[in-house]
Design a protein around this nucleic acid. Sequence first.
DNA 1: AATGAATGAGGATTCATTCAT
DNA 2: AATGAATGAATCCTCATTCAT
Lengths: 206, 206, 206, 206
Amino acid sequence: MAKAMRRAVTDEDKEQRRVEILAAAKRVFARKGFQATTIADVAKAAKVSYGSIYWYFDSKEALFHALMETEGDALRAHIEQAVLGSGAAVDLESALRAAVRATFEFFEADKALVRLLFRDSYALGGRFEKHLFGIYEGFIGDLELLIRQGQKAGVIVKAPPRMVAFSVAALVGQIAHRRLVTDDGLKAGVVADFIVDLVMDGLRPR
Amino acid sequence: MAKAMRRAVTDEDKEQRRVEILAAAKRVFARKGFQATTIADVAKAAKVSYGSIYWYFDSKEALFHALMETEGDALRAHIEQAVLGSGAAVDLESALRAAVRATFEFFEADKALVRLLFRDSYALGGRFEKHLFGIYEGFIGDLELLIRQGQKAGVIVKAPPRMVAFSVAALVGQIAHRRLVTDDGLKAGVVADFIVDLVMDGLRPR
Amino acid sequence: MAKAMRRAVTDEDKEQRRVEILAAAKRVFARKGFQATTIADVAKAAKVSYGSIYWYFDSKEALFHALMETEGDALRAHIEQAVLGSGAAVDLESALRAAVRATFEFFEADKALVRLLFRDSYALGGRFEKHLFGIYEGFIGDLELLIRQGQKAGVIVKAPPRMVAFSVAALVGQIAHRRLVTDDGLKAGVVADFIVDLVMDGLRPR
Amino acid sequence: MAKAMRRAVTDEDKEQRRVEILAAAKRVFARKGFQATTIADVAKAAKVSYGSIYWYFDSKEALFHALMETEGDALRAHIEQAVLGSGAAVDLESALRAAVRATFEFFEADKALVRLLFRDSYALGGRFEKHLFGIYEGFIGDLELLIRQGQKAGVIVKAPPRMVAFSVAALVGQIAHRRLVTDDGLKAGVVADFIVDLVMDGLRPR
DNA sequence: AATGAATGAGGATTCATTCAT
DNA sequence: AATGAATGAATCCTCATTCAT
């Protein structure tokens, strides 16, 4: 039991270290980009030795994947919680709005993540496409579910639900990314609402 | 004068070579991605010598920028022509539809360009952001003009025109990019119309 | 006394561990070669922890040397026994034949040792040369003794005894090594006899 | 034609450089061994820049292979010439003696080669085994031919010719290798004759 | 203009060894 | 005794760029 406890502590320590490295990697990757970041950079930022990175991650690429995995999970959990916390069950639009708002909030609070997702991810080319695709698809899948429910309830017109979902995801992602560079002077909430309004009502005056 | 003529011919030759190199670069960049492509790859594909590339372009990066410049111009010309060729002057929606359709056609006929624009461009990180931004902004600027006209004519609701324009551009780009990987089984024209319909009418049943 | 007993047991355990590690090392070294083998490989094969290897051996190289020591001793013991078991005392040729046969048997039963001796040993370059030399020299020294006895008894022609001894050793080793790669379709005994016959009678018809 | 000439000169230069690198590599490999030699070592010894090595050879390993190829060819040519230069056509023993002597001379004049063949080659493990095997087999094949001729002429007893050939090769190689470390105080010619005598007449007094 | 040889900085990765626990 | 996390030196190879011809 003593051994078990000691092991538990050790495991925690190890996890702790892993998390620290991930955090450091996130900072560096976001600032310099995946390609320009060296393992030495990450090591220095994490205040561990050069080779220690390799004790926790198999390669630079694996480190990036692990990072995206973690971040993707956090994002999705945040969104899910937001959707559940709203009157989502009864009202499709509220759910959609909650999801989009939550995403924007998350991105707003974590610009590094936006950079990682929408710029650096491409640096890995096809090797990451599948993974990024996975993260995206998770998000899109959730949206699709909402869309389908809306269609069933008659509050959403007939339209290919997956494509609609992807469109929303694309808008959210691209606008968030754009806001890294261009200041549109708008609050995140306003932008989120803009997207939902556009998607729900379109541009044609009613 | 004889000299001038010879020079003229030479200049044409030179331009010809430049174009060949650009074409080769496009093929290689599109296939392997910017980072993974070496100057040697481009040289071989263009059937010129190793160092010749540097006679025509200052650096690998400059080559990529030049390529994007050329491609961006062609795309924009294609769209402009399509818009003018439609009954664009009187009808905002037709113009928008023409623009989106033309873009999709262009992308459909040139998958390499899509890859270049939406994947490799990011590989250059901040260094390219400005340039990509430029191409984008050109496209977005044109769209914005249309939107503003529509708003003035009362066929488009009040909404931040630049953000609407960016949204359309983002949708077009991201969906085109997605189609590289995922087959949605739809014709380019159908997808284009989907986008315009979504943007014009939204999802709420009228 | 209790303490002494406990210590005794512990020492046995320790020796046991040492032997296990040596056995594991032999397997791994023989399969992957000295250079390509990592301490981690050995540790895993021996089912001990990473750093434990260093409790028993000072370094990777020391481990290899220890292994060679052990194996060399075993080989020599096997040969010695074989020679003594034959009518060696009176008959030089029988003794030589017994020695060569025994060596081949031993090698045949332990291909890993052959690989270790005749391939990996060289990987240590000069550092091992001396040691390998030692093992060899032991074998050669024994052979030399036989040769000298034969010369004294008049059944062996005058010839530099050490060089003869080395020649026999070289033949045995190289042919055994070759048999790892090339199948000559011959039994070990036949090959052993071939060597002895060649060395004793030469190729010229009598 | 001028162009052709210039090209010819350039090709010679290139070949010249390649040869210089090979020569430098030989020196360094022989002194430090394959593993311990770095590309930087070779570059320095060849007085070319680091990366230039890679212009001529694909990898460190490829460099080694090329080196062995060259050396193997030279050795074989030397032997062939020696055999032809002796009264080889009529007399088997002379031919064999000439071959063994020539090999020893060659090895004596080029200790580095001996080291390369009989020590460093093993450092590449299985990857080189095939190549080394090739060099060996060439030599052995030639010897086998001689043996077969001798058997046909009745001056060589019945014995598996390939194994005899291999035995001779092994003796030559191993004794030459041994002489790198141990001084037996004998001239190369004497050792060569010792080998041939041993192989031809054996140790049993006639 | 064109060639392609030469350069060398740069970086990911490996692994023997150490050491705190 | 045993563990396994930590270290960081070491090295191969890549490739953009330069430059003599």
